[in-house]
């Protein structure tokens, strides 16, 4: 359970990063959400064997991190945490797809390996971009930006509540689990069956809490509509930010820049 606690603490620290002040932090959340979405779309739209064209996209996370002053190691650690899942998705590609794709001298690289590394690179790029977005914007602002960009308010409210109560729920489950551990004296306790009733209790408690929250909302005049009071301004800096980055992403998507550079150099040499 300690690891869950730590993960939650990390989530909180990611949230605290969003309170910093930098040129990037000050931009309207919608601009950052749009740019991140375009970035992710561009990155995932490549064919499965594409690898070289992906590398120029690293310019986005690198520049965003250096401009906003986010701790790069912290973001890197978050990304590495997700790598096992990505590896699980792609690990069978090299096994099933053995056709030789590239010759590097006498080394033959199969298509499977290329697509595997491509999946890995793409995940690092997209997950990294999402973390950076959270780190420079904050979860709440991202939700509100999504809502003002057309996401149904119901989803936004759901996400906000999820985020608000995930801390309460994890603390509650950590406490319950600690209580179980302390009384099972390093053994298995009663095994899986005790976990079953624990999860059941947690669900019931969550239910009761939801009822109390609903009461608290009703007590303050909640009628089904969720108001939020936040002024945001989409001005020239935001427009410039969106246009510059999207132009770059679309250019990178349409032109394989490493290939262009390569052919330029070979032409110069020959």
């Amino acid at each position: 359970m300690a690891s869950i606690n730590r993960a939650v603490l990390d989530l909180k620290s990611l949230d605290l990063l969003a309170n910093r002040s930098s040129a990037i932090h000050r931009l309207d959340a919608r601009a950052k959400v749009i740019v991140t979405l375009i970035f992710i779309l561009c990155v995932v739209s490549y064919s499965r064997y594409e690898l070289t064209a992906l590398f120029p996209f690293f310019v986005f996370p690198i520049i965003m991190i250096s401009l906003s002053g986010l701790p790069p190691l912290f973001i890197l650690k978050k990304i590495i945490l997700l790598c096992p899942f990505v590896i699980a998705v792609g690990i069978f590609n090299p096994v099933f797809d053995r056709e030789t794709f590239v010759h590097l001298g006498f080394i033959e690289i199969s298509g499977g390996w290329i697509s595997f590394i491509s999946i890995l690179t793409r995940s690092i790029l997209t997950v990294g971009a999402a973390f950076i977005l959270l780190g420079v914007t904050g979860f709440t602002a991202v939700c509100q930006a999504l809502e003002s960009l057309g996401m149904p308010p119901v989803f936004a409210v759901q996400l906000l509540f999820l985020y608000r109560y995930i801390f309460v729920l994890t603390e509650e489950s950590a406490r319950t689990s600690r209580a179980r551990e302390l009384r099972s004296f390093g053994k298995k306790g009663q095994g899986i069956s005790s976990f079953g009733s624990m999860v059941g209790h947690l669900l019931l408690r969550t239910w009761q809490r939801a009822e109390r929250i609903h009461m608290a909302m009703l007590a303050r005049g909640f009628t089904g509509e969720f108001h939020a009071c936040r002024q945001s301004h989409f001005g020239t800096p935001e427009l410039r930010f969106v246009f510059a980055w999207s132009a770059l992403f679309i250019f990178l998507r349409l032109q394989n820049v490493p290939q262009l550079l390569g052919s330029l150099i070979t032409r110069l040499i020959l």
Binding site: F161, R164, R212, A216, G221, H227
Partner: peptide
């Protein structure tokens, strides 16, 4: 004005400001 026993039930908005503004907005 009802103040509940567990403040975690009462504070459900993303920031303190939003939470205090919740009633007046409604």
């Amino acid at each position: 004005g009802m103040v509940f026993q567990d403040p975690d039930d009462q504070l459900f908005m993303p920031t303190v400001f939003d939470d205090v503004a919740f009633g007046p907005l409604n």
